[in-house]
Amino acid sequence: MSTKHRMPSDEELTAFIDGELGAEEAARIETMVEADEAVAERLEFLARASLAYKEAFAPLLDAAPRAKLEAMLSAIPAAQPARPAAFVSRRGFLGALAASVVAGIAVDRAMIGVGTSFSRKDENSEWRAVVAEYISLYTPETLAGPVPPRDVQAAQLASLDGNLGLQLSPEQVALPDIDFKRAQILQYDGKPLAQIAYLDPETGPMALCIVTSDGGPKAPDVEGRKGMNVVYWANATHAFMLIGHAPVDRMTEIADAVRSKISV
């Protein structure tokens, strides 16, 4: 082929298609495409591979085990020195992932399941520490986006029923003047943990978290964790915690509203 020596390389044509050439280079290629049928054909051929890549790979984002990854991330201890004693002794959670940790990363501090502690009175606070750690990573941006419509809320809540044996309607978990954002099941050493996330326009992220519990009913109590306030209580089958940045009075008020709607 006589035009062979003037043929731009596939690299050049690819860069041209991808808009990676400078103006001068691009103009040179354009001229060649116009002047030479063979160049135009090769360009057209390579452009056939301009497929819907983004769309094709989008479902893989949904396939990512977000809750598991988020929990894993929050289980990685902060590198900062001089942590308060309460946290040094706190046993982390989600050791499951540590089994496959690569390259000698010591996550043993974050190991040892929390699962066994759910049923033991003295350690009932463990899961709340873990949730607090997790929620403390949330910012208003984490929960940005529109409030899901009622049917979506209902569908999300239905997943809690299957996992926790807890039937909740959007109305039951609606909080006064605070937006429902999502309900999801997190997993904790094989035990389901329901998290209903809200965004309070005034104070930011808030969450109602629920685990199964056989520790018996417990009246509401209040505590501070990770700079947030927590109201926690239990009925015969489940333990609840409401965590957020709102002042204690408001948190207690909200928790009371929730308790009156979720049969205790």
Binding site: P65, M72, L97, V102, A103
Partner: peptide, 24 residues
Amino acid sequence: LARLWRYGLVLSHQRDVADDLVQA
């Protein structure tokens, strides 16, 4: 996290390896 996991999956073809990669 999800984008990293997806890249891990594209590289390894295995979900559990993708998990490991994200953690590491």
